[in-house]
């Protein structure tokens, strides 16, 4: 009972933060009792067309990243695993950057996210083609290699970009943000993220069995090939669609499962739901901080999560070193 209680508290906290997060922003504080019912009213417009879709996108993307991190760490049995690991984030980057560079992004609004999604799938398939058949380690190494190639491609496009405005747009996108998003983007990402998350949640029992190692998991009826495919497809859909809309946001997928794992007794299956909630909470908090920081230009989310996340990653490595000398 204690275990599900911590998840309920997390949900309650998330709802509270979500409600509060609607209040502050670049246009000043919005107070709910000042909102009139008039559609033409500026405050009304800001609330319904800017802050609410921004909140929804933050929740959606954060949950997708947190869940994907939990699933990947369960699959690889490696607490340092991250959704960026399988070439998914870098594939989405390259796809979106190509769309911006080629001018297709300017031609119609959804080109960038759609190219990003295609890139995510391409990255995932490349990783699978290279890395399957040699166990988990070869999959991870293949993911690292594919990520390297895709990132180099992204840098190449950035380098070749003749127009400083395009270069600016590309780098802005690579830093990740949920600012200035519309319901259209939420609508684009939501179906893919939803399907991906359903696929990922369904892997829970198999991930639990996998904590006994691949051989015992197989003896308990887990089809490892099918499991790997499910995880990859689920992450490509959920994280690919999320990254395609917001740009790359790191460390949420790494941090979220860690923060909740102890409260659910380290079971990979029980980690999934709280990891998704925690991912949404972390992303939302980062977005609120980004909005509240008194800087002349709003910080990009990816920059902020990187600034907070990388010291945490270092601490994790340091702790693992201490535990296993």
């Amino acid at each position: 009972m204690k275990r599900s209680a911590s998840t309920w508290w997390l949900l309650l906290l998330l709802i509270l933060v979500a409600l509060v997060s609607l209040l502050p922003g670049r246009a000043g504080w919005l107070l709910p009792w000042r909102l009139s019912g008039h559609e033409a009213d500026l405050a009304h417009l800001i609330f319904w067309q800017l802050r609410l879709p921004r909140l929804m996108l933050a929740l959606l993307v954060g949950a997708a990243l947190g869940l994907a991190g939990g699933v990947l760490q369960g699959l690889t049995r490696n607490p340092l695993a991250e959704p960026g690991l399988l070439g998914i984030s870098s594939g989405a980057s390259l796809g979106a950057v190509v769309a911006i560079y080629s001018g297709i992004g300017a031609a119609f609004a959804l080109a960038v996210p759609l190219f990003g999604l295609a890139g995510a799938l391409l990255g995932t398939l490349l990783t699978l083609a290279v890395g399957t058949g040699g166990g988990m380690l070869s999959l991870i190494l293949a993911g690292a290699a594919v990520s390297g190639v895709l990132l180099a491609g992204t840098a190449l496009v950035l380098n070749l970009s003749p127009n400083p405005y395009t270069a600016y747009e590309i780098s802005h996108w690579m830093m990740g943000s949920v600012a200035d998003c519309s319901w259209q983007q939420v609508g684009l990402a939501a179906p893919f993220v939803a399907v991906g998350m359903v696929v990922l949640f369904a892997t829970g029992p198999a991930l639990d069995a996998l904590s006994l190692g691949e051989l015992q998991a197989a003896s308990l009826g887990v089809d490892l090939k099918v499991l790997r495919w499910r995880v990859v497809v689920g992450i490509a859909l959920a994280v690919g669609a999320a990254t395609a809309v917001t740009g790359t946001i790191g460390f949420i997928g790494l941090l979220a499962p860690h923060l909740v794992r102890g409260s659910v007794g380290h079971s990979p299956r029980r980690t999934l739901l709280p990891a998704a909630l925690m991912g949404a909470l972390l992303l939302l908090l980062a977005d609120v901080i980004a909005r509240l920081l008194p800087l002349s230009q709003e910080l990009n989310l990816g920059v902020l999560t990187g600034l907070i996340g990388s010291p945490f990653f270092l601490w994790l490595v340091w702790r693992m070193k201490r535990e296993s000398p």
Binding site: R77, L212, S219, H266
Partner: peptide, 13 residues
């Protein structure tokens, strides 16, 4: 049922 040699668990369950 099957139990391999030197079976271990990867998480502190």
């Amino acid at each position: 049922g099957y139990l391999p040699q030197n079976a271990r668990c990867e998480w502190p369950l």
